[in-house]
Write a protein that binds this DNA or RNA. Structure first.
Lengths: 228, 228
DNA sequence: ACAAAAGTGTTAGGCATACACCCATGG
DNA sequence: CCATGGGTGTATGCCTAACACTTTTGT
């Protein structure tokens, strides 16, 4: 599509490595992604996922963590390498190869900084994300596809929930990410049968409805077991 | 583990991008990987998978294809991005981030060049691969793990077989890669039930046994369907 | 005739799916 | 008392897994 222009910076004379992070949360009954509004031409007004160059003395994984912290405002969240995007013309500023990551954060863990909607950093529902800079549309689609797939065979969902949650909340995460309704009885039967979660005995009151039991995940580290 | 030394080449002053390719085939009742013997210190005598730097004017995908052609001696084979390895100290020569790929080739497609065993480029059974340079042991393990997983939900096996093959040969590919025996009747039932392959009507004669029908894959491009 | 690989069915148990009503609470 | 979300069981069909013998050929 676009041809790479003459490089504007010396360091772009060689291919350099950047990382972009698709940071997701589940809020307001939807899967949302964090985007930052760009100022630079030719992308003025378009949105991009948090990203930046990898420094010479940090690993690519560490760079992704740093960017998530500096630009996304979150730390200690689930972070997993997604795919590396290496088209020659993917960045009009020069030859940049991007190692993309997926990150997940429970909406309960978001600070005011990111929940308040600043003009230039905002959560968007994935379904109606605005025009994106670079190849970030492709990165976003790849990330969502992988997240959906992993929900089906790992315990990754725990990274979108607080440590204690109701089964309805868990089911809602699945429904929102997969984009389809699930049968309540079958969902509970399956989740309990495979031992994904355990009851805590506590319950959540406060709504005008029967109190719900609170559950927590059994295994904290990533595990692969057929779920759905 | 190792600290990065002072760079020996100017271009290593920045992180540069390389690609390494795990090229697999199934031969002699085993999963084999192509390795090249190294001459440079500190890896003299160790083996490495084909790899090299990404040039400024080629995509990362194209670089992997080129390396597979130049160093692996094969072209037009299945090639898929695996993972990007970005530890700071993974290359003692400088800061090199490697985008690793998995490639598959049917043993029937191998030229003499790679089947004859040169002193410095050889197929090794994955099970007893020699000491590897860089982080290539980790790359190899990641590649095998992914290959095993994908065998179970895609039609990827076709890239390890000629266009026509017997069901026993197909089963053997599965057994060799997964490292376990499968039940013949159940295997055939399943493979035929999901329509992965179709009979060609031809048969293979020549051995002192009943002739086997030849089959071919139905879909050529990658497809995801539950297989095993 | 024999060695070698190809080909073929049935059963039992487990798993996924479809489906509707009562319960406990807050307001 | 009513609106809201929480919680629960069964029946059916499908898929999986276990298991052994006959067929066809080349030598």
């Amino acid at each position: 599509m676009k041809k790479p222009q003459a490089s504007k910076y010396k360091k772009y004379d060689y291919a350099v490595i950047a990382t972009d992070v698709a940071l997701f949360t589940v809020r307001n009954r939807g899967l949302q992604v964090l985007l930052i509004k760009m100022k630079k031409e030719p992308y003025t007004g378009k949105w991009a996922m948090p990203g930046g160059l990898v420094k010479a003395n940090e690993s690519v994984d560490n760079a992704a963590e740093r960017i998530l912290r500096e630009k996304g405002g979150v730390r200690n969240v689930y972070l997993e390498q997604l795919h590396t995007f290496g088209r020659v013309d993917r960045d009009p500023f020069g030859r940049v190869v991007s190692v993309a990551y997926t990150a997940l954060v429970p909406s309960t863990k978001l600070s005011l900084k990111t929940t308040e909607e600043y003009a230039d950093i905002t959560w968007f529902p994935v379904k109606d994300a605005p025009a994106l800079a670079y190849d970030h549309r492709e990165i976003l689609e790849t990330a969502v596809e992988r997240l959906r797939a992993k929900l089906g065979y790992t315990n990754i969902a725990q990274n979108l929930l607080p440590s204690e949650f109701t089964l309805s909340e868990l089911q809602s995460v699945y429904e929102v990410v997969l984009g389809k309704k699930l049968d309540k009885r079958n969902f509970r039967k399956k989740i309990l049968a495979i031992g994904l979660v355990k009851g805590t005995g506590k319950e959540r009151r406060g709504q005008a409805s029967r109190p719900a039991e609170l559950y927590s995940f059994r295994a904290k580290k990533m595990k692969t077991i057929e779920i759905l």
